[in-house]
Design a protein around this nucleic acid. Structure first.
Lengths: 232, 232
DNA sequence: AATCGTTAGATTGGATCCAATATCCGCGCA
DNA sequence: TGCGCGGATATTGGATCCAATCTAACGATT
């Protein structure tokens, strides 16, 4: 009697409700909601993605779900195993090195382009985000704030594709770093970097800012790699 | 009486035949073949992608076609217009600047990682590819050789995701540069760069090689941007 | 004659239906 | 008792069917 799918988690229902009105087609809606759920940790790495179950949760048929899953596959967020279903993509230690390299290459480039265009409001917003992060305990929220802080500093690069790539890899790293945030002293060290980065941006010192970003990303990559190698 | 779709072009049929045996599921096969067709210029930018027509050409139903189109959408190779169909994505002058920035950031990183691991066979293969390019007139073949030359030099980076990103953006640029190859003196200048790059790699001079790559990519980006701005 | 509204047709978006394949369990046999 | 085989079952992959909507052509009205 397996035909009755499990009820979706309350978190997932929240993500679904938040995204439903934003899109005209069901496929886009499902794709956006699932991406948010995966990046936000609501659907953890390795979680099996039953098409029927998701369709019921989203209130659509299996087809938009399948199309959305294919899009997420192209973004390396889910993996298909033929005739065995899709799962939320897990990240390996090699992947983490990979992502670290990509971030180290892209983020300084984005920052260098963006820095001259940053306004006082941008810097103020970044400062606000940092302040909020200081008191934040929830890892999911923390990840989102971290992403938004970085992206705020890069936003004026005026390169939508570059920024999308950066955000994608930032999110991919964050999704795993989440587990670190509470465990180790990583969070405070990361915040130190953030404040130093913001100061360099205020000073308009591109070289210093880029150097901080490189260090910051490298450190995050090392934490992540170590974490991924440990629990095996 | 519009129900009879056009016959596919001979080029497309060739791509289809070449890819069919390589995959287990229809969706993967369609995705691979369509990607090759788009990157190879068989399906030019702006071409409308009728689902029924493609399904007939591939010998499958519309569903695998739709899934494949969604994957290609996630890779920014096709665009969906709700209820109006999908078209092969065109690239704007801004996109080209974007892609240039991304390449300029990623390719030196890939080269730097790869260079120490390059073998004599790798360098020999690269030289062979260059030699073949000297006598090549077909733009599609030229683009493929160019891609393979670059990727050969980056291959030992041991970063699959980075290399996939590099190849993706290299291909995106090539797809448009194709029109340049014959028209201008671009081809010979590009080949000069290639030979210089290969020499620097043979010498193991990472800094020089990266500088050449940056120049080369920048020049290609400028050509592309100029071309895209010209014909309106 | 030009423009706007109406309507027919084609095409996509979504749902349902069928077939193919993988998993899981139990049974038989060594 | 352990291993391998076989059938039952669930789940995916693919095909077909229906509804929603966009396009285009035609005609009426000014």
């Amino acid at each position: 009697m397996p035909h009755v799918p499990d009820a979706p988690s309350p978190d997932l229902t929240a993500v679904i409700a938040r995204n439903r009105p934003r899109f005209r087609t069901a496929t886009e809606f499902v794709e956006a909601a699932m991406r948010e759920a995966i990046l936000g940790g609501v659907l953890p790495a390795g979680a099996p993605l039953r098409q029927e179950e998701l369709a019921a949760a989203f209130g659509v048929s299996r087809m938009p779900v399948r199309e959305a899953l294919r899009q997420l596959e192209a973004r390396a967020l889910v993996e298909f195993h033929p005739h065995r279903g899709a799962v939320v993509a897990a990240i390996s230690a090699e992947d983490s090195a990979d992502i670290g390299t990509i971030r180290t290459a892209l983020e300084p480039a984005a920052l260098r382009l963006s820095l001259p265009g940053l306004t006082a409001e941008d810097l103020g917003l970044a400062a606000d985000l940092l302040a909020e992060m200081d008191g934040e305990a929830d890892p999911g929220r923390m990840g989102e704030l971290n992403r938004r802080f970085h992206m705020t500093l890069y936003a004026r690069a005026g390169r939508p594709r570059l920024l999308a790539l950066v955000e994608q890899h930032l999110a991919a790293a964050d999704r795993y770093l989440r587990f670190q945030f509470v465990a180790l002293g990583y969070q405070s060290r990361s915040q130190d970097d953030h404040y130093a980065l913001l100061a360099a941006c205020r000073a308009g010192d591109a070289d210093a800012a880029c150097a901080i970003v490189v260090d910051h990303v490298t450190a995050a990559g090392k934490e992540l790699t170590a974490f991924l190698k440990k629990p095996a």
